[in-house]
């Protein structure tokens, strides 16, 4: 019978302690200390997020001089940023046309260039209007007229 001598070397390994490398200590002499809490935005790309909601179609009832509409902005951007929205003609003039290209002229009023007050807003509302002169209504054949406006959003400095 052989005696087996087993020598077991117990290796006392210091476990990798889940404590930040730069810890501070309190003791009987130093009874108060501070730890810094900080946010990590490394996963966030760009300037943040936003949504502009505007009407897909703006219906104008015949003979109405002024029709009011609105667009809304919600945003969560970096500090110091804001959203600017511009409502504009597509370049063919502020005229609604019918199928035979007869025109119904109109103008835009209100806030056609809107800018939020800060980087974080919820449903910030901007009002604008479409105006048609009574003389224009009186001279227009009864028909369906339409035109296109463009909404453009940009992240700008607040």
């Amino acid at each position: 019978m052989k005696k087996v001598i087993s020598l077991v070397m117990a290796l006392v390994m210091m476990m990798a302690i889940m404590v930040p490398a730069f810890a501070a200590e309190l003791n009987a002499t130093t009874q108060s200390g501070t730890a810094t809490v900080q946010t990590d935005t490394s996963a966030i790309t760009g300037d943040g997020t936003y949504t502009v909601t505007y009407p897909a179609t703006m219906n104008i009832v015949w003979s109405t001089a002024t029709t009011n509409f609105e667009y809304k902005v919600s945003s969560n951007l970096r500090t110091g940023k804001a959203i600017q929205v511009v409502v504009a003609d597509t370049g063919d003039g502020l005229n609604m046309l019918n199928a035979s290209n007869a025109t119904l002229a109109y103008t835009l009023g209100g806030t056609t260039t809107g800018k939020t007050t800060g980087p974080v807003v919820t449903d910030a509302t901007f009002n604008y209007s479409i105006n048609v002169d009574s003389a224009v209504w009186a001279a227009a054949a009864i028909d369906t007229y339409s035109d296109t406006l463009t909404f453009t959003s940009t992240v700008v400095d607040a």
Binding site: V19, P20, E25, A35, Q38
Partner: peptide, 8 residues
């Protein structure tokens, strides 16, 4: 022992 920094 307190951490110097905690990141959120």
């Amino acid at each position: 022992t307190i951490p110097a920094t905690a990141t959120i």
